[in-house]
Design a protein around this nucleic acid. Structure first.
Lengths: 188, 188
DNA sequence: ACCGTCATGTAATCGGTTACATGATTCT
DNA sequence: AGAATCATGTAACCGATTACATGACGGT
């Protein structure tokens, strides 16, 4: 069988790049190097607003990418044995290729609130809860845009602009649902 | 220890309801009964627009819900041994409870195109590809609203309206990116 | 020195995706 | 009736979530 040859454990060259991979590659590429914990903070401060990752992934994924030769792994000798990662030339090339493919993929909304609405949940309470959440998020984004927006590179700034647009859409949508559902029966 | 008693394999009462569970429960509840294949068609014709499921899930998930006692499973005696599912009273109760909790959960965009934008992809080609995709989706939704919209129950119609709103937002966003990126260098 | 909390990391589980497999149907 | 295509179903794999575990650190 073809898989039977003895590989002297060279970097396995063919990994699928998931969005998680891209985030890890992209952030390490921007910062030069990072430990998983630093990655966690970097995600929270950057793409985390529209694509967050559980911290456990930030230990598993770099390890996977290192096995594939896209990252270089350096283990600290001290007590914690922290691992520091850097992007290899192979990794840069892979990231570059991924960035160069303009995707026409459509992303589904996959919003649990919408699911509740679809299957007949009571619209008043649902819409009010959603409205609160989205108003808060919108305020947060607008504050972000006001404070750090001007200093952001074009990509991140556009992403933030997009987030604001969608939050405005959500606020408007749920507002209409609230209006059509009538006022909170707890009132008056 | 408390878990040590001998259960005579009764329906395991505590399943987490994932969105997948809810879609399966909800659709079977609306149609009365369904086989996995019918579920596949039902999803495509309903929630599939904003929350699709790979067909393999529509075999695995009903089985799981049946084990938990939320669905009743009936096996056809013929050659295919098709399985037909119905919602049990326990299942209806579980669905009802889920629908009654108004969630304030915020859903991330998680759009691969935005990810590319964020990490510095060439904006022109990306934005044009995205624009095409979203224009097509928007046209599809608007056509749906025109044709079947008036006959839809409130929940599904609102969900569709929401989808249209978000697609308009995407179209506007990527249009701006196209404009700011300048015209296609492939042009004269 | 102890306790609570946060930082950091690993392990186990589970849902979801991908790939494969077989039965039905249609067309020629 | 044979081939191609679609319907229907199962199995294996893998990424992601959850839960657990330990190390550091600040306060009292």
């Amino acid at each position: 069988m073809a898989t039977n040859q003895a590989d002297p454990a060279p970097p396995h060259p063919d990994v699928r790049l998931t969005p998680t991979s891209v985030i890890v590659l992209g952030l390490i590429s921007m910062t030069g190097q990072a430990t998983p914990y630093e990655l966690k903070q970097a995600v929270a401060a950057s793409v985390g607003n529209f694509w967050s990752l559980p911290h456990a992934q930030l230990y598993a994924e770099p390890a996977r990418l290192a096995r594939a030769g896209l990252l270089d792994e350096q283990v600290e000798s001290g007590g914690r044995r922290r691992k520091t990662y850097r992007v290899t030339p192979v990794g840069h090339a892979a990231l570059g290729r991924w960035l160069a493919e303009p995707t026409g993929t459509y992303t589904e909304l996959r919003d649990p609130g919408l699911l509740k609405l679809y299957f007949g949940a009571d619209r008043g309470p649902l819409a009010r809860a959603q409205l609160d959440a989205h108003r808060a998020k919108l305020a947060e984004y607008e504050e972000l845009m006001r404070s750090v927006g001007p200093t952001l590179p074009p990509g991140p700034r556009l992403a933030l602009r997009s987030g604001i647009g969608h939050e405005r859409e959500w606020v408007q949508f749920w507002s209409e649902v609230v209006r059509e559902a009538g006022p909170d029966p707890g009132d008056g």
